[in-house]
Design a protein around this nucleic acid. Structure first.
Lengths: 195, 195
DNA sequence: TTTTTATACATACACATTGTATGTTTAACT
DNA sequence: AGTTAAACATACAATGTGTATGTATAAAAA
């Protein structure tokens, strides 16, 4: 009759990391990275600082996990929303709108776009976004280029520029502008890529 | 024969503030806001922490002064570079290129674009940029709208979107992309605004 | 010109926070 | 069953921030 061993190390780790990431996410969104203390994080998560520093090398490392999770969610939502369109340009437009909607949900703009560059650095953030959120954009642009639907521009800078243009649009939505007045301008920008 | 009273309070204040802003600017660019300590700032400036907290309410306040100075410099450089062009669209393009060049000089992208939003908040940074760097852009877009040179879009969101698109472009230059591969894409975006 | 006041600092301090070092419990392995 | 190692928990040392208090000099008042 063995009633102990209620939980395995793996499950325990998974659970603790989840609690910490959830608490970190909540506080980073509410007050920003700098204004959020680790005592506050662990209190919110219901664990101790020992657990935090066992699972993450430092506060920045926890923040990185939060951002990665947010980026992953954005990527997933984009894929869910993506639908085939008549033209390559239309596909880029719907994808762009889906991106802006996804990244302005759940406070993701705060973590990814506002705090991200300063906490993780521009380079590392770009790498993370690359892994999670720019896959479909790159594919869309690559296809459009191949079929001559857009001007012959270098793919990589194109991906970066469209991506950062959309980041900017999302920031404006985050700042209070209505999506309805932002979207047509984004679409106009994309029209400019058309050949 | 009065040889004392070497310096007036006004001049003294001016000098000290200048030293602090210069030191802060240098360190914020090199290491970012969070990683820069006030002891380090005052050591670099050759003053004491007392002077810093006399002239600025806190570290953020000094940072604000740095960003305002950088934004002012960007505004000045844009005006200096601005030249009349054949069309409204061309004027917007040359202005945009001037902006990207100006904001990617002297480490300004780091203070204004990377650290700015997280340290000062998106809203306040927008207000500062509005006061210093968006004047000519707003005028250019307003004129273009009035003459029907661009699609009939709301002016304010348009200013914001073009501005943030240019911020994004500048960040890519800051991240290592050549200006020469960024510029044509920016110009393409602007073409998209044309009616 | 003398006295008073206010400015421009300089110094000391109290508090918070970060990362680490060390101790303890429990799962996993031999 | 005994040993190892993971997953914490606790204590601590160092650093940094903003404030409170002290001091010297410029500026204003008398």
């Amino acid at each position: 009759m063995q009633e102990k061993k209620a939980i395995s190390n793996q499950k325990r780790t998974e659970k603790t990391r989840k609690l910490l990431i959830k608490a970190g996410k909540k506080l980073f969104v509410e007050k920003g990275f700098a204004a959020t203390s680790t005592p506050e994080i662990v209190k919110t998560a219901g664990v101790t600082r020992g657990a935090l520093y066992h699972h993450f090398s430092d506060k920045q490392d926890l923040f990185r996990a939060v951002v990665e999770q947010d980026c992953e969610a954005v990527g997933i939502e984009i894929n869910r929303e993506s639908e085939d369109a008549d033209s390559f340009i239309d596909m880029l437009k719907t994808g762009s709108s889906a991106f802006v909607k996804a990244i302005t949900s759940q406070g993701r703009a705060r973590t990814i776009l506002i705090e991200g560059p300063s906490v993780l650095g521009q380079k590392e953030l770009m790498a993370i976004e690359d892994r999670f959120t720019r896959l479909s954009l790159r594919q869309g642009l690559e296809a459009a280029l191949k079929h001559g639907a857009i001007k012959p521009l270098a793919l990589q800078p194109l991906v970066e520029l469209v991506s950062s243009m959309l980041d900017g649009a999302a920031l404006k939505v985050e700042a209070g502008f209505d999506f309805e007045e932002i979207e047509p301008i984004v679409h106009a920008f994309i029209d400019g890529l058309a050949e």
